[in-house]
Design a protein around this nucleic acid. Structure first.
Lengths: 206, 206
DNA sequence: CGCCGAGTTGAACTGAATCAAGAAACGTGG
DNA sequence: CCACGTTTCTTGATTCAGTTCAACTCGGCG
């Protein structure tokens, strides 16, 4: 498999989003360095499985995660993909101490930063612009989820697919097609047909 | 229409969620009283319509709001109901200054508190427990949206309906059935049939 | 009284799921 | 580097959940 060479360190990320200079961030991170740690995982490894309790947020430094559930009929439903620079947090489990019902799996060999439950709180107390960052992240996450709900309520399989490739072309290229289908809430066979139809349309109009 | 007599003031809400005493909250609110104001609206009034830019979060003190979009075929899709003690925020519009694409409509005569865009930020700077409240609200909102996505991806119309009445029996009783259908992402006729089937099942098992 | 919005019911239709089979791509071990 | 099994993708035939369209009922309300 060809490796993808994206790597956005947590420091890069913080610098970019908080507009603080590198040394401020390095200092802040050093002062709470027991609140996070870096690990590497291999393709196929699980960071979290149903029944376990979640103690960390995951920041993806390199690689790709998927966060999914399995329903009563054994079908997988992907809630999120997380490439470099994204977070995965199992909020139900982390904030309420319940065992999770989701899988968090590495789709590629990945470098992940584990952030303690109180990482954000503690970091926040050291600098104002981090509070704002955190809020912005949550706000954006909400906007993202809301958009997805609107789409699930109103768009056809084809529309959802077209939108997905437009917004996440890189993810499209990095995961098997049936996972995209699972994310979009359609059967893999249906996605295959959707793609065929789109290809035909495109040919005709050319 | 019979009136519903729930009323949860913003102060009640803050006291309950931040565990601060009443006088602290009253003082804090007094110090930023230009950052929020109370209004009353009538059933059918719109607090926000597509094309307008959103400048406030809405806190529902009394009454009921719905937040919905209209798709290209003219169909409505309800993103959220908001009864007493709930918030409605159009984040796309408020944080990015874009005109909104959603309707925010009062389904009953309502008392609404308009919270300025920076209400939360300013209030946060006066007390730590408010930062936490804000974060918890956002976290819960995310959990809620995520659950809804999982359900849209995996559950049948019947399962979604059963879950809805279990969790929001009060909303079920306060809005027309076709709005519940719209929230669940099914046609009103389908919801009617689902209910009929459920009634039959219940009779048989009795 | 007559109108109107909400809900129900039936019949026909349809987008997508399911089932089944085969083709292509992939990775792993020899 | 090839051979083999596994996974992914495609295609066709069939089924099904839910939509659409249309007609009818019911209960309020001016």
């Amino acid at each position: 498999m060809q490796t993808i060479n994206l790597e956005i360190t947590l420091e890069d990320f913080l610098r970019d989003r908080t507009k603080l200079d590198q040394s401020t961030i390095t200092n802040a991170l050093t002062s709470i360095k027991d609140k996070y740690k870096e690990i590497t995982v291999k393709k196929g490894d699980f960071l979290l499985q149903p029944g376990e309790v979640c103690h960390h947020s995951f920041y993806v430094q390199k690689g790709l995660l998927r966060y999914y559930s399995v329903d009563s009929k054994g079908k997988e439903h992907i809630l999120n993909f997380a490439p470099e620079g994204w977070f995965v947090t199992d909020r139900d489990s982390m904030y309420y101490g319940q065992p999770t019902i989701y899988f968090t799996e590495a789709l590629e060999d990945s470098t992940i930063i584990l952030l303690d439950k109180d990482f954000f709180t503690i970091f926040s107390s050291t600098c104002q612009s981090f509070i704002e960052l955190n809020e912005r992240l949550l706000q954006n996450h909400i906007r993202h989820l809301q958009k997805r709900i609107t789409q699930l309520l109103s768009a056809t399989a084809e529309e959802r697919y077209v939108d997905f490739v437009r917004i996440y072309p890189n993810i499209m290229a990095r995961v098997p097609q049936w996972m995209v289908a699972s994310y979009l809430g359609i059967a893999p066979e249906s996605l295959s047909r959707v793609r065929k139809d789109l290809a035909n349309k495109w040919k005709k109009s050319n």
